[in-house]
Simulated scan of single mutants.
Amino acid sequence: MTSSIDRVGARERRTVLITGASRGLGRELAALYAGDGWRVIACVRGQASFDGNIETQSLDVSDSASITALGRGLEGIAIDVLINNAGIRGDTGGLATLDDEDFVEVMRINALAPLLLARALQANLVAGEKRIIANISSRAGSLAEGTLDDDDGDYAYRCSKAALNMATVKLAQDLRKDGITVLSLHPGWVKTDMGGDEAQVPVATSAAGLKARIDGAGMADSGSFRGYDGRRISW
């Protein structure tokens, strides 16, 4: 593990930056990309150790100053793929337990932070070859499908992912001139700390599917919403 950012030979291989990489889906994605020969910049809050040649950067996505500092620290580094994976669920008790501070915090981390990261790293992405922003969203944020088989009372999480989906569409429009592809991706109900014991999709399966969607994406896919298995999800 290393926390330094080496600018020498930076374009010898493609580079991916992953937020929320200390555990769960983010950690699995970091391992997959590193195993595939990519340069991996794993953004974590606090301390984290990784096997293999994975670089770490300190990042608190709830703090706009931390995001700005990350962008400054990575100035001049070409980034091929930005994966906005960091997220929290918040309260799940429904309307009766809805808390304003909890709601705002979930929105800040799940919906606002990806926009701030896209802005902070826009020049890095333009300098890259792949030029992809992958927002890890959720079917729970789909107005058409989000409550078809799920009646959990997680108002903040659902609203934040719906907002993130709109952010994907807007970014896809605004960044098309720069040749940047922007995706919303549903990872499935993944067996992680957030997903819980009843989750159905192994983290390795979800991460492999997401990587396949990201690696195969082009401008024709920009502004789309798909599952880890490739299925198109309704907005």
Score class of each variant (00 low, 15 high):
residue 3 S to D: 15
residue 3 S to E: 13
residue 5 I to F: 14
residue 8 V to T: 15
residue 9 G to A: 14
residue 9 G to L: 14
residue 12 E to N: 13
residue 15 T to K: 02
residue 19 T to N: 02
residue 22 S to G: 13
residue 23 R to K: 14
residue 24 G to V: 08
residue 26 G to T: 11
residue 26 G to Y: 04
residue 27 R to W: 14
residue 27 R to N: 15
residue 28 E to C: 12
residue 30 A to V: 06
residue 32 L to P: 10
residue 32 L to G: 13
residue 33 Y to M: 02
residue 33 Y to L: 04
residue 34 A to P: 14
residue 35 G to A: 09
residue 37 G to H: 04
residue 37 G to A: 10
residue 39 R to Y: 03
residue 39 R to S: 12
residue 40 V to C: 00
residue 41 I to K: 02
residue 43 C to H: 06
residue 46 G to I: 01
residue 48 A to I: 04
residue 50 F to Q: 05
residue 51 D to R: 08
residue 52 G to I: 00
residue 54 I to A: 01
residue 55 E to S: 09
residue 56 T to C: 03
residue 57 Q to E: 03
residue 57 Q to F: 00
residue 58 S to M: 04
residue 60 D to K: 03
residue 62 S to D: 13
residue 62 S to Q: 11
residue 63 D to K: 10
residue 64 S to K: 05
residue 66 S to D: 06
residue 69 A to M: 13
residue 71 G to K: 12
residue 71 G to R: 07
residue 72 R to Y: 11
residue 74 L to S: 06
residue 76 G to Q: 06
residue 77 I to Y: 06
residue 77 I to H: 09
residue 82 L to P: 07
residue 83 I to Y: 01
residue 83 I to D: 00
residue 84 N to Q: 12
residue 85 N to T: 13
residue 85 N to H: 09
residue 87 G to F: 14
residue 89 R to K: 12
residue 91 D to N: 15
residue 91 D to T: 07
residue 92 T to P: 06
residue 93 G to E: 06
residue 94 G to K: 11
residue 95 L to V: 15
residue 96 A to T: 13
residue 96 A to Y: 05
residue 104 V to W: 11
residue 105 E to D: 06
residue 105 E to Y: 05
residue 106 V to R: 03
residue 106 V to L: 06
residue 107 M to H: 08
residue 110 N to Q: 11
residue 112 L to T: 11
residue 117 L to D: 04
residue 120 A to H: 10
residue 127 A to D: 08
residue 128 G to H: 12
residue 130 K to M: 12
residue 130 K to N: 05
residue 132 I to C: 15
residue 133 I to A: 08
residue 135 N to Q: 07
residue 135 N to H: 01
residue 135 N to T: 04
residue 135 N to Y: 01
residue 136 I to W: 03
residue 136 I to P: 05
residue 137 S to C: 10
residue 137 S to V: 01
residue 142 S to K: 02
residue 142 S to R: 02
residue 143 L to Y: 08
residue 145 E to Q: 14
residue 150 D to S: 04
residue 150 D to T: 03
residue 152 D to H: 07
residue 154 D to A: 15
residue 155 Y to S: 03
residue 156 A to Q: 01
residue 156 A to L: 08
residue 157 Y to G: 07
residue 158 R to Y: 04
residue 158 R to G: 03
residue 162 A to D: 04
residue 163 A to K: 04
residue 165 N to Q: 13
residue 168 T to A: 00
residue 168 T to F: 00
residue 168 T to W: 01
residue 168 T to G: 03
residue 169 V to W: 02
residue 172 A to T: 00
residue 172 A to V: 01
residue 175 L to A: 05
residue 176 R to L: 02
residue 180 I to C: 09
residue 181 T to H: 07
residue 188 G to T: 06
residue 191 K to R: 15
residue 192 T to G: 10
residue 197 D to K: 11
residue 197 D to H: 09
residue 203 V to Y: 07
residue 204 A to P: 10
residue 205 T to I: 15
residue 206 S to H: 10
residue 209 G to V: 01
residue 212 A to E: 10
residue 212 A to G: 13
residue 215 D to A: 10
residue 217 A to G: 11
residue 218 G to P: 07
residue 219 M to F: 02
residue 221 D to C: 04
residue 222 S to E: 04
residue 223 G to H: 11
residue 226 R to P: 00
residue 226 R to A: 10
residue 226 R to G: 00
residue 229 D to W: 07
